[in-house]
Design a binder for these strands. Structure first.
Length: 312
DNA sequence: CTCCCGTTAC
DNA sequence: GTAACAGGAG
């Protein structure tokens, strides 16, 4: 099928001239509003890009910058991260959340160091096969690190495109085929432009076309948006199924245990005796279940007398 | 679909 | 108090 026809089907109601104008206005907005993040504008390696993307999964960018900077200082490439102790890596991950990402990142570093000669592979298929690297991160590395033409689809892109061109919210769950089709149809043909397009769309979703209270007066696409024109239907409605509140969940308890271990990581014997472990959480049934799951995940090691420590 | 962390902003 | 956050894996 001809590209032009595919485009028309995916974004009916928007003609080519209009889309070209929107692209220009988006790029213009990007030029003056892009945040000066340390991994942007060619200041780091592909590996540095990958680290920034993994740290940014489900985590606000403002919390990532300092962690990324010190992390890259300690382990500037895959080989150096692969050689670090797991305890060091988990400790350096600090309070970024979802510490399994740190484990996957070190596993990823080992594969890159050993199988790819310490250089990230340059194909989507090889990247997405790496530990902790899914569709979004593989696409982001292909686009932002290697400049390849590929649609990068995250929660921001889904929200911005679906709102603007379909006039509706993109609700939670996995990316739908229709959303992917739309993103691919709109992606500029020129590779360099496609990279800017991806970066700018994500930035627009993060700064302006936000989930709640979008800054319509600052949105370069405000006059084109079917969502705004329709009065932002269903905005603020739950995007995902109601979840348990964080307090008292296994995630909460696991976090408490890991935080206790991180805090004594610089001691001579960084091991928490069973007696001190039991003081971390009253419900010992839940506590032991969490300790078992942390052990299964490889985030901790259980000693002979029920003591606990970070993996060596 | 559910679980996985910790913080922010509403 | 809770949805959301540059998602990924089972």
């Amino acid at each position: 099928m001809a590209p032009v026809k595919r485009l028309r089907e995916a974004v009916d109601g928007f003609n080519a001239d209009e889309l070209e104008t929107m692209k220009c206005e988006l790029f213009s907005w990007w030029d003056t509003n892009a945040r000066d993040l340390p991994w942007r504008f060619g200041r780091t390696t592909p590996w540095g890009i990958l680290i920034s993307e993994v740290m940014s999964q489900q985590t606000q960018m403002s919390r990532v910058v300092d962690y990324w900077t010190s992390w890259m200082g300690a382990w500037p490439d895959a080989a150096s991260l692969a050689e670090a102790s797991t305890a060091e890596v988990i400790t350096a991950w600090g309070r970024l959340g979802y510490p399994r990402r740190a484990l996957r990142l070190q596993e990823c570093a080992t594969v890159v160091a050993e199988q790819y000669g310490n250089e990230l592979p340059r194909t989507y298929d090889e990247l997405v096969a790496l530990p902790g690297i899914g569709d979004y991160t593989a696409s982001a590395v292909m686009s932002f690190a290697f400049g390849e033409r590929i649609a990068v689809i995250d929660t921001n892109v889904r929200r911005v495109l679906w709102r603007t061109f379909k006039g509706k919210e993109s609700f939670g769950g996995a990316t739908k085929p229709e959303e992917r089709k739309l993103a691919q149809a709109l992606l500029p043909q020129d590779a360099k432009e496609s990279v800017t397009w991806n970066e700018a769309l994500i930035e627009l979703g993060a700064l302006v076309c936000t989930a709640k209270n979008p800054k319509i007066d600052k949105d370069p696409w405000a006059s084109y948006s079917r969502f705004y024109a329709n009065g932002c239907p269903n905005m603020g409605q739950r995007r995902t199924r109601p979840r348990q509140s964080f307090k008292g969940t296994n995630r909460h308890v696991r976090g408490i245990v890991l935080n206790a271990l991180r805090s004594l990581a610089d001691r001579e014997q960084p091991t928490l005796p069973r007696a001190e472990v039991e003081q971390l959480w009253n419900d010992h049934v839940q506590l032991d279940a969490c300790i078992a799951s942390l052990d299964e995940d490889g985030l901790i090691e259980i000693g002979p007398n029920g003591s606990v420590r970070l993996p060596v």
